[in-house]
Design a protein around this nucleic acid. Sequence first.
DNA 1: GAGTGGTCTAGACCACTGT
DNA 2: CAGTGGTCTAGACCACTCC
Lengths: 270, 270
Amino acid sequence: MAPKTPQWRELADQIADRIRANEAGFRPGDQLPQIRELVAQGKGSKTTVLAAYKALETEGLVTMARGHGTRVRRPAPHQIRRHQDRYAWEKQQAKRPETERMNNGVVERDTGLGHDQVECHTTFNAIPADLALASRFGVPVGTLMLHRNYWHSTPGDPTALSLIDSYLVHEVAARNPDLLDTSKEPWPGGTQHQLSTIGIEIAEIGDGISCRVATQEEARRLGIPPGSAVLLLDKTSVSTDGDVVEYSHVVLPGDRTSIEYSVPLERWAQ
Amino acid sequence: MAPKTPQWRELADQIADRIRANEAGFRPGDQLPQIRELVAQGKGSKTTVLAAYKALETEGLVTMARGHGTRVRRPAPHQIRRHQDRYAWEKQQAKRPETERMNNGVVERDTGLGHDQVECHTTFNAIPADLALASRFGVPVGTLMLHRNYWHSTPGDPTALSLIDSYLVHEVAARNPDLLDTSKEPWPGGTQHQLSTIGIEIAEIGDGISCRVATQEEARRLGIPPGSAVLLLDKTSVSTDGDVVEYSHVVLPGDRTSIEYSVPLERWAQ
DNA sequence: GAGTGGTCTAGACCACTGT
DNA sequence: CAGTGGTCTAGACCACTCC
């Protein structure tokens, strides 16, 4: 009846306990015994020891790098995103003068970094809407969409804070030619400001949240352990006319992100 | 000519493509070639082929079971949780007569199942509050808390829909002795009704959402692939007096859950 | 008991990091 | 080039499922 735990699991748990106990040699930044050493100590074959270390890596406790050893991971600073505040703030900012918007993007607000400490990398292209996209926007399949892929980072660090794919109906975006111009990025003031230049006001934003394990590519770009989890955010902006005018798909590092909402409830009748 | 992508990745991608293309022999429920067979075909050693299959399992494309083979997974029905509606509905239900509450729990509402098709398993115990719990509730560390662990399932299927740990201040819960009585579970009407019996009305619920890879235990109990992702929901209920009166930690299967919110925005001044 | 995945070993060789 | 993780092999043996 006792579920037999494999040797690699036992070794991983044993090391995990010592890390959690903050034992000497098992503190953040410390290098753990190398694989060959544990093999020599009879903890198992190379495959077994490696499996244990891999498990700890996926669980976010250690980092592994060729030539650099296996080290205890420094806990990543946790980022809390309060979307209700965030979206309302972004809407207010959109109507502020450019000088104010310049130094206060939503990314700067999230991270507490200055304007010059955030880099934005963007790629634009135009694609026809597939079924999923078309039904989201309520347009015919094949409608030309403006697809913008972007991510933010701090200078000198290739780690992305999030990976974003944003979609607009191309014809709508084209009302302001600057929206199609990559060289104009980063656009001070965010998407809500951009839309305001073509007379669109956002009345409501719908958030859908799910998760899955990161692809190797995502793990590399977000600087998270291979095989760890990412949060997926589907954000749909609806205009005051009731049209879906923007849709973003955001990939967030699971180990350092949480999203918060507050749900007020109506009082019971007295 | 060492390939940049490992052999096991290449094999996994190759099979994944054939599954996504819905090729014959790669449809949901179909048994994939067994490991020994692929080894014989020269796709690699057993370790290599197993690694490829394991990757596909983690990615949710296949299931593996000893003696049963590796099979293409049937896509799990996706469950969308709209918490703003859900919490408001639950609050309304709390004031309805018992006969109505009996057959309409929030779980039945989510799943569309009848009252008799949902089983609830509960464990109660009393524990002293640790620092995290105490600061959440604004009580001194060591305050006695009622801890209830429960999960729901359908009869004959040991798979849990979610894993829930709920906490109440013990002294508060004890005002209604039935709340401490395991034999009274399942309680028709949910937590908001339970709290209403001791004169507490919920004014606001705070949701915090994050994610990580499932533990082996969680994967087993939720019926999700080992190494896949789970959504974590931290739910905090605040009474009309402004006190935190209940806190739940919910583990949800990442491959079949998404959570949705709607954020209305104030209009710009005309 | 046949079928099939899971764990483990011992060792070769590859690929990246940092001195 | 030394250090250290990553991939791969060939094969033994274990554990679970289904007939």
